[in-house]
């Protein structure tokens, strides 16, 4: 029996895909052994590596609590937030593979250039557009608010877009996250620019590139039904918006 109050720790092997643009021509895998508790998260493992073993390891994180969207990465082949992936949910009898999300230009270690992702996001005009200037607040029924509730939860982590095979092979595709953000406003009863957004998403690289792979829904750390949202935007592009 273990001593009372002592929490058991485990050695977890992380195999991290490293890349330093100043010295490397190709990314390579490097392993690290880290002492961890089952309540720790992958992010804690990366911290321990950076703080105690190799200060050059580079990754983004800000809130460390699943809300800023900066630490999406491929963990054991799946896009997850490092700060929401608990060690106890992984099989630590095997190494834990960690690499940058795919489809965006790799900058260093786990950091990618997010600009193409945000460019697509900006293009769908992700802000409320309303010409009416009511004297009181805009009224919206519970049902009207419910209509787009799911897509308000997006934290722009890019886990969905960088899990999409169409985005991998052809970086022109708007990608699921931009469509989710468009959905957020297309189905908002107060918004007046739905048609503008649908016209944008009707383009060659718009919603019609989606092949219903469901990778995005599986990847979303916020549990957004991304594929469903895309299907609803397709539906609206064919037969008009039904709020």
């Amino acid at each position: 029996m273990s001593e009372l109050g002592v929490v058991q720790s485990f050695t977890v092997t992380f195999i991290v895909r490293r890349f330093n643009p100043e010295t490397d021509t190709e990314p390579y895998w490097q392993d690290f052994d880290v002492e961890m508790f089952s309540t720790d998260r992958v992010l804690d493992g990366l911290h321990k590596i950076k703080w105690d073993q190799d200060g050059s390891l580079s990754f983004r994180r800000s809130c460390a609590h699943g809300i800023c969207g900066s630490d999406a990465m491929r963990i054991n082949g799946r896009n997850r937030l490092a700060c929401k992936t608990l060690i106890k949910d992984l099989d630590i009898s095997k190494p834990v593979y960690v690499e940058a999300i795919k489809g965006l230009p790799l900058e260093k270690d786990l950091i990618v250039d997010m600009e193409p992702f945000f460019a697509a996001y900006r293009e769908v005009q992700p802000f409320l557009q309303s010409t009416s200037k009511p004297k009181k607040e805009h009224h919206q029924t519970i049902e009207q608010r419910e209509r787009f509730d799911d897509t308000t939860k997006c934290i722009l982590c890019a886990a969905c877009t960088t899990s999409c095979p169409v985005f991998w092979t052809d970086g022109q595709y708007f990608g699921p996250a931009a469509i989710v953000s468009a959905h957020r406003f297309i189905f908002d009863s107060r918004d007046e620019a739905s048609q503008v957004r649908l016209d944008i998403l009707n383009s060659k690289e718009g919603v019609w590139r989606c092949r219903t792979t469901f990778n995005c829904t599986e990847a979303c750390p916020r549990g957004i039904e991304v594929t469903k949202a895309i299907a609803e935007v397709k539906q609206a592009a064919i037969s008009g918006v039904r709020r």
């Binding site: 016209d199 009707n202 383009s203 060659k204 718009g206 019609w208 590139r209 397709k234 592009a237 064919i238």
Partner: peptide
């Protein structure tokens, strides 16, 4: 393509 919306037509087809 904006007016014809060929990609949408293809999807429906």
């Amino acid at each position: 393509m904006k007016t014809l919306r060929l990609e949408r037509l293809g999807w429906i087809f």
